[in-house]
Design a protein around this nucleic acid. Structure first.
Length: 430
DNA sequence: TCTGGGGTCCTAGGACCC
DNA sequence: TCTGGGGTCCTAGGACCC
């Protein structure tokens, strides 16, 4: 049954037969609840129910070994022994806050110094990306084993196409959502929230309706009652700038946005963004759930503990720069990519950023080459002001065959064709 | 309230070609 | 010599997301 259904779906969309392929589209958005902090709570059960934030510098394995030796296990560390947000000095932002911490107004991306003023007693834990990535792989494996069409949206979020999954239509997707939620809970001990709707746009909003551990189901008919009253900023794709502009134009809610005509929106927000806003406000979104994609660029960047000056701190800056190039090269090699657009980013003490990039003929994944071209970029940028951040980026990526020193077949063909057409065209010049 | 690190996509102008 | 329209690539900046 399911097989027959999939085959019918594979037909071109203009072939509209009366088949099971006409099932209503049900798309889920699943969002882990306070992901990083929740992973840490599995290790420190004594922090359950307390305000906890993740941020600051990483523990070294030696630090952790010492803690375990001192207390006979992480779970035995007494509350008095934990770092408190109020005693934190330095820069940076909070990555995640537990729900008790959110009651104090703390949240992701908030500056640590501000958070420390709001809730000095909050416990501060260092970040451990490797651990979160491992949990991320686990919960995604659970999802794929139940519903195979999943789109990765980062470490703690996915979209899932429920449409053709057995049971995916029951109660609009609520039954399947609950099953996935429970499977993740029993496999990892972590909770998540799910929204199910006719498309990604609405599913994303729905997953936020009841956090934590919520399931929210939205149908097309619910648009006016459930979506329109929300502030525009709840739409994924309307950020701080567009939100402020809307406010200045007297648009507060999604209903306000939906009340504006398409030409009006295009006039104020441009052809592409205006048209998208119009569709979004009416709950329209045809984007498919994309299960695979290739990276476009890879980068590494770092914010210095103290601002650095190009002249006074030349040696230090040079060492950091080289290290960033090496790290990008490691990433490229480990993942099997090479690129030919090398760029740098730097941010001055006043937070203004500039970028420079150079596209070269040869693809590379070598630190020395990257360092050399990135160095040329750096020379084209003013360096009078002190710097707070330096970054290195490699773009224009292809899947790289390290043994053959060339892109793998599909890319190779495309590039060859391109080069040939160029050669032929330039031939008469010689 | 002084703002991390990793990404994607869009815009816009200029170069260069047909 | 001037005019034009379309297409692709490159570069810089910026908005946005997790």
């Amino acid at each position: 049954m399911a097989h027959a259904c999939l085959r019918r779906c594979a037909r071109p969309s203009n072939n509209r037969g009366v088949t099971t392929a006409d099932l209503p589209r049900r798309i889920a958005h699943l969002d882990m609840d306070a992901f990083f902090a929740s992973v840490e709570l599995l290790r420190y059960p004594q922090l359950q129910g307390l305000p906890v934030v993740i941020g600051g510098r990483r523990h070294t394995p030696e630090d952790e070994a010492q803690l375990i030796a001192q207390w006979g296990g992480l779970e035995n560390i007494p509350l008095e022994a934990f770092d408190r947000l109020g005693s934190y000095v330095g820069r940076g932002v909070i990555t995640t806050a537990t729900y008790p911490a959110r009651k104090f107004g703390l949240g992701s991306a908030m500056g640590m110094m501000k958070a420390a003023r709001l809730c000095p007693q909050a416990i501060l834990l260092p970040i451990d990306f490797a651990r979160y990535r491992s949990y991320s792989r686990q919960f995604k494996a659970v999802i794929v084993s139940i519903a195979p069409v999943m789109e990765d949206r980062g470490v703690d979020e996915v979209y899932i196409d429920f449409t053709h999954v057995p049971g995916g239509q029951e109660q609009g997707g609520r039954v399947l959502a609950a099953r996935i939620q429970q499977a993740i809970q029993s496999a990892t001990g972590l909770s998540c929230s799910v929204g199910v709707a006719p498309n990604k746009l609405l599913a994303k909003m729905a997953s936020e309706f009841q956090k934590p551990q919520g399931i929210s189901v939205v149908y097309a008919e619910d648009l006016q009652a459930l979506i329109w009253p929300l502030p525009c900023r709840k739409i994924n794709g309307i950020g701080p700038k567009a939100g402020a502009k809307m406010q200045a134009l007297g648009i507060e809610t999604i209903a306000d946005l939906a009340a504006r005509s398409l030409p009006w929106l295009v006039q104020h927000f441009g052809k592409s963004y205006g048209a998208w806003l119009h569709a979004a406000a009416h709950g329209q979104d045809e984007r498919p759930v994309v299960t695979e994609s290739e990276p476009v660029s890879m980068s590494r960047e770092t914010t210095f503990v103290h601002d650095l000056h190009a002249v006074q701190h030349k040696a230090e800056l040079g060492a950091v720069f080289t290290r960033l190039c090496e790290r990008v090269a490691e990433d490229l090699q480990r993942k099997g990519y090479a690129g030919r657009t090398i760029g740098i980013k730097l941010r001055y003490a006043n937070f203004k950023s500039v970028t420079r990039e150079i596209t070269v003929e040869q693809f590379t994944q070598e630190a020395v080459t990257i360092r050399q071209i990135a160095g040329q970029c750096l020379r084209r940028v003013p360096l009078e002001q002190p710097l707070r951040l330096l970054g290195v980026r490699v773009g224009g990526l292809v899947v790289w065959d390290a043994a053959q020193q060339q892109p793998r077949s599909a890319e190779k063909v495309a590039i060859k064709r391109h080069m040939q057409s160029r050669d032929l065209l330039t031939l008469p010049l010689f």
